[in-house]
Design a binder for these strands. Structure first.
Length: 624
DNA sequence: TATACGA
């Protein structure tokens, strides 16, 4: 175990080197089974591969996807033929009917042309990737050099009725030519675990509560089925002719503006030349441009809750045609601060009820209480938990240091000094410092700058311009220290963050998990340092449990805090999954033993990390 | 009580 900060950085660097090396050896399309290397999230697979060039798109892909038209003529869609809008069971819902991986039962009218389907829009669509010649180039940056064999080690658990089986390749899924082409352009050769499970579930029309780390391919996991579904046009309705009112078919909500932008950018790529129109709406930016975008037509609306409520109140958006609802970082969206707004949007406007629309909730953690709330939005849903093995928390070295409130600044300075001295070319590695308050963020940023550490800050009181500027400046290494409130804790994809410092620890262990998840990405290891003192007593228990679960060294003094704090919550439902299906523990399931008959457990328990152990199948987590 | 989310 590293004994000093510098040691752990050194250890981290060598570990990262090894992991990347073996990933390249494994290579895309290689059948090598040697060397399980680190799981690299899909959007970060653009690590320059020094010794290997990315292979061409997988052979298994080419020509193997039938067009959707081949499959048309399955089950009749209840939306077809007009009649009662809410009438009839949702296609594939309720666990009856089609649940095959091939999704053969879908279909109905074939490609609908509401948004142009295959045809319209292709010429007029602005190439989101720059000029037309560089399209391939833009996609190019996506991912290369991943060892897909590492996926096999990630444990996945599903529960619910008649869970559609997972797929192993994109070729097995009938997503349509245009979408397939974008997948190929993105060099997504093989689906990530969350995609392997979530996409068939979603294509089968089922609701989904999915627990997976950000960076595991979640965005694609909900975007692909939505785009594909919209292209098939399984809606019998023409949008009502209401002037200046937009009628999106899909709504994707996320808790921060930056995250919505990020999702929008990704969705644009996936939807390129499909005729499916993606629009983003968030606060802090002039609303006029967003209104114009909406007026020009929207199929998928990505939004933050506040701005969406605004748009709904102005009657510029109607949710009555929504067929897909996705909540990203769903646990945050349903916690105290956001819940009323979300309920208002989902339950008190004109959105179709659960069972009519299809709902997908994604988050890295899913506390039981939140699952209970979330169940209100879902109908006969599948619970999916993708393990963390090989994903971020395994790659993060977590340290906790006892630091008095008054010593925090000088202690941080020591860390930064050591880091700079230790860094490559004397450069400061990207360091993300979390504080509790917006004022605290400003103060610390100022103090760092005064002490000649190039720092910037991001929090909710800054203008959107300032926020984006700070993020850019941090990403580019211009100001390699970013002081942040929880606005930056979730979902944001900032490559190369070497160190996360919890200057102020959060009150909730799940927030801690999200925060440290900003490092340890791209198959690199990362370092997370927390400053702990009496103010954090309530976190002692869960923090020490979490660290123990992650095979981290737990200082003896922390364990003593943990024992002392009677009220401290223990880490529930965690383990190698962010959570487990609360229905499995509830009394509702008593006497319904095969309620989970469709559930299946992957064979991922021999995973690296040293905590695979004496647990047989049926045990959700070795850490429970 | 903090954070985030519309002006």
């Amino acid at each position: 175990m590293p004994t000093s900060w510098a040691d752990s950085v050194a250890a981290e660097n060598s570990a990262a080197g090894g992991a990347v090396g073996s990933a390249n050896n494994g290579g895309v399309g290689s059948n090598s089974v040697s060397g399980r290397s680190a799981y690299v999230p899909p959007h970060l697979r653009n690590r320059p591969a020094p010794s290997s060039t990315p292979s061409a798109p997988a052979a298994s892909y080419a020509g193997s996807v039938s067009t959707a038209n081949d499959r048309i003529g399955g089950q009749v869609d209840s939306f077809q033929g007009g009649g009662n809008r809410w009438g009839g069971p949702r296609l594939g819902g309720g666990g009856s009917g089609s649940s095959g991986a091939s999704v053969g039962g879908r279909g109905g009218s074939g490609w609908n042309t509401r948004s142009g389907g295959w045809g319209r829009g292709r010429e007029r669509e602005v190439n989101p990737f720059g000029d037309d010649d560089s399209t391939e180039e833009m996609f190019q940056q996506e991912n290369t050099g991943i060892n897909f064999d590492a996926y096999e080690d990630i444990p996945v658990e599903t529960s619910g009725e008649n869970v559609p089986p997972p797929v192993n390749t994109f070729a097995e899924i009938d997503l349509g030519d245009a979408l397939n082409q974008n997948i190929r352009r993105c060099k997504y050769v093989k689906p990530t675990p969350v995609q392997r499970y979530a996409i068939p579930i979603s294509l089968a029309g089922r609701d989904l509560m999915a627990c997976a780390q950000t960076g595991s391919g979640k965005t694609a996991a909900f975007c692909f089925p939505i785009i594909s579904g919209i292209m098939r046009g399984q809606h019998g309705q023409r949008p009502p002719r209401v002037p200046r009112m937009a009628f999106p078919l899909a709504l994707i909500l996320s808790p921060t503006r930056e995250l919505s932008c990020q999702i929008h950018d990704e969705a644009k790529k996936f939807a390129y030349q499909t005729g499916v129109r993606v629009v983003v709406a968030y606060g802090g930016a002039p609303i006029n441009q967003q209104l114009r975008d909406l007026e020009r037509g929207v199929d998928i609306l990505v939004a933050t809750p506040g701005r969406l409520v605004d748009l709904l109140e102005r009657a510029r958006v109607s949710l009555q045609l929504i067929r897909y609802l996705a909540l990203d970082e769903a646990d945050r969206m349903l916690d105290m601060g956001f819940e009323p707004q979300i309920r208002r949007i989902v339950e008190q406007m004109d959105m179709p009820p659960p069972g009519v629309r299809q709902t997908m909730l994604f988050s890295a953690t899913f506390p039981k209480e939140i699952q209970r709330l979330a169940a209100d939005f879902l109908s006969s849903y599948v619970f999916l938990a993708v393990g963390r093995v090989g994903s971020s928390t395994d790659l993060i070295v977590q340290r906790v240091e006892y630091v008095h409130e008054s010593d925090k600044r000088s202690h941080l300075m020591d860390l930064l000094h050591a880091q700079r001295a230790n860094g490559v070319h004397g450069k400061q590695a990207l360091t993300l410092v979390f504080v509790e308050t917006k004022k605290g963020a400003d103060a610390l940023e100022h103090w760092l700058c005064v002490n000649s550490f190039p720092a910037t800050a991001i929090h909710g009181d800054r203008t959107q311009q300032e926020r984006e500027q700070a993020l850019r400046s941090f990403k580019s290494g211009n100001t390699p220290i970013l002081v942040a409130t929880d606005v930056a804790a979730r979902g944001l994809d900032i490559p190369h963050v070497a160190h996360v410092v919890n200057f102020d620890l959060p009150n909730d262990i799940d927030d801690y998990v999200h925060r440290i998840g900003r490092t340890g990405r791209a198959g690199k290891t990362g370092l997370a340092t927390a400053f702990f003192n009496e103010n954090n007593t309530s976190l002692a228990r869960s923090l020490s449990d979490l660290m123990q679960e992650a095979n981290q060294e737990v200082p003896a003094w922390l364990s003593r805090f943990a024992v002392r704090s009677v009220h401290g919550k223990s880490r529930r439902g965690g383990g190698r999954f962010g959570s487990r299906d609360f229905r499995r523990e509830s009394s509702l399931t008593r006497g319904v033993t095969d309620y989970y008959g469709g559930g299946n457990l992957s064979s991922g328990y021999g995973a690296p990390g040293g905590y695979a152990g004496s647990y047989g199948p049926g045990v959700t987590s070795a850490w429970d």
